[in-house]
Amino acid sequence: MSLDRIGYVYTFGMGEAEIEAALETTDTGVLALASSGSAYAVPVGCYYEDGSLYVRLTDDGASRKLSYLEATAEACLLLYAVGPSDGSWSVVALGPIRELTGTDREAFDEATMIERFGKPRIFDEDLEAIEWSVYELEIEELTGRKTGGETLP
């Protein structure tokens, strides 16, 4: 297959200010976890503030993601957007992830969680059985790519 015949789009590294803007304006990402050579990725609500990246997770007592989370040494969070005319960007954050507890967790009451992460997406869970938790991904590596010619986000 020849790329000359099917076409392609050049991508370029994003600068720190562009990455920061993407993190500050995006409230949904994909959290990738791993356990014993098996991967698991799940869409999550996310929030960025002052160099910290947070994700909101729910558990109804049968959460596959939480079992993967416990086994993951380094998590990966992908944020991305695709705009008109093939414009796009993506940011990948890598690092350890930990559940917030105590006063750190208390900073995320119900109203604050809705404000920062948006409305939760509920599937077949029993609403009364859902437990809410907030995790912080300690950013050790952060990279961003964008398509050429456009200022994003």
Rank of each mutant, 00 (worst) to 15 (best):
I139T: 12
T112D: 05
A39W: 12
I114Q: 14
T72G: 12
Y48K: 00
V92P: 03
A129N: 08
Y68F: 15
W132S: 04
T28A: 04
D50F: 00
G13D: 07
R64W: 14
V134C: 00
A32N: 11
P153S: 10
Y10D: 09
F117T: 06
E24Q: 04
E18V: 09
W89I: 05
Y48L: 00
L23S: 00
P43A: 10
A39N: 09
V134R: 00
A21K: 02
T143V: 10
W89K: 04
G95F: 14
I139D: 08
T25H: 02
E141G: 07
E74I: 15
D124Y: 11
D86I: 11
G37R: 12
G13M: 07
A62T: 14
E131V: 07
L78Y: 06
Y40Q: 01
F12N: 11
S133M: 03
S85P: 15
G148A: 13
V92M: 06
E138N: 12
E125P: 11
A22S: 05
G95L: 13
T151C: 11
I130D: 01
G7T: 04
F12W: 14
L23C: 01
V82F: 09
G45A: 00
A71I: 05
E136H: 02
E128S: 11
G102Y: 14
P43L: 09
E125R: 11
P153C: 09
